[in-house]
Design a protein around this nucleic acid. Structure first.
Lengths: 228, 228
DNA sequence: CAAATAGTGTCTTTCAGACAATATTGT
DNA sequence: ACAATATTGTCTGAAAGACACTATTTG
């Protein structure tokens, strides 16, 4: 190697916090560890980055491999890097964490070797001890998500390609954990530039007036923002 | 090692974007490379993380070692991790980038082995090609800084322990690159909760009415924010 | 007093939040 | 008609931006 350092190299992994809405709750996909350390404990899906592989590619690959998910997340961003010297008792490992968001799926999890992968309401995991520093990573991911709903159109990543304003409001309510006034929310969403684009369709939930159907717009940031 | 992976380990480095205000400009501390690759090109200070060292510790140590700076930055946060497979032509290297902020220093740079370290106005580096992906890292750092001035009290990290509202306004003007109305700014800063705390001192710049002197308050976020 | 800088007040516009009112559907 | 949901309107208060005005210093 054309490069020598006096320091031993590290292992580099990616961990993915994949969030979605299921059963009226913000849920995260977790795997159950089958080997030491933390055997039987819940962990975020993740694994080693390959020699020629880009970081975000590695995150997507691990998601597929460890959970059997065949569909792409609607959103993927780097969350942060966790590298405390003792975070993995086996060896010095630095993990690059990613935050991914998926619309609510009709199927349960739909995986091949996904026996070990399952959705868990984020609230239920607050008390439980997770593997490694995954509790901290999850907490950071949830806070990032809550914050990004304010300033970016991230909420649309929780929705299918077309959706109603009420669908979008439900995202905010479930992620923020509190109710949002329907009328004011409608005004804010439709006024914010390029947050959503109307279609000529309507949708009905059986009872009540049918709602207009929208598609995600091209905005990168929300102006004006939708504050918590 | 109690841990074997089928994949070769990576080199892990930290790179630090240290920003300050000097000569009425936002400036960044850069070192000049003395070896291949990118010999003679400007680079961010940085280097290998040590086996037992925490990531933020490594960032501070590299700052001291590579630049001879004896004082601690007033702000240090993780910016992001850059790990494209070819970013370092010698070997697969993943770099964790940090953003650090320092008040304007009376002394020039004050370093021991800091011969190679020097301040550069961020604007001057826009056109120049830097080493590795450091141009991208710098751009990300500057954008993060501009954005954080809106929602956090980061601007106080550019100031000495006590400062005037005009000092703070100068931070916003130099970082954002545009003028800010003095009257409106004064109202916003003093109204935002815990952004600044008054002292009983005043300060004069020779001509004009003396200004009240403030200290940084305890706020973590600015409410209401000071938008661009 | 003039110049310079600090700080306050005024006015208009925009938006948030509370909540009332209207619109359109299924039962 | 009634219940349910969607959408629009009304009112009040907070805050932004433009800019005039007052306050306090030096020369």
């Amino acid at each position: 190697m054309a490069y020598t350092s006096e320091f031993p190299p590290f292992y580099v992994t990616v961990d993915v916090v994949l969030l979605t809405l299921r059963a009226d709750a913000l849920q995260v996909l977790m795997v159950r560890r089958g080997s030491k350390p933390y055997v039987g404990r819940l962990a975020l899906p993740g694994g080693f980055v390959r020699p020629q592989e880009d970081l975000p590619r590695a995150a997507l690959r691990e998601l597929r491999e460890e959970t059997g998910l065949k569909i792409q997340p609607r959103h993927l961003e780097q969350l942060g890097t966790y590298g405390a010297p003792r975070r993995d008792p086996r060896a010095r490992t630095v993990s690059v964490a990613y935050l991914a968001v998926l619309p609510e799926l009709p199927e349960p999890v739909a995986g091949t070797d996904a026996a070990a992968a399952a959705w868990h309401p984020v609230e239920d995991l607050g008390g439980r001890r997770l593997s490694f520093d995954h509790g901290q990573i999850l907490a950071d991911a949830v806070e990032r998500t809550r914050s990004k709903l304010e300033y970016t159109p991230l909420a649309t990543a929780f929705c299918p390609p077309t959706f109603t304003i009420a669908d979008l409001r439900r995202v905010y309510e479930l992620v923020w954990g509190r109710e949002v006034d329907a009328g004011n929310f409608h005004r804010k969403v439709t006024r914010a530039e390029d947050f959503v684009n109307g279609t000529d369709q309507t949708s009905t939930r059986g009872r009540g007036r049918p709602a207009a159907v929208y598609r995600a717009g091209g905005a990168v940031n929300l102006y004006p923002p939708i504050l918590r």
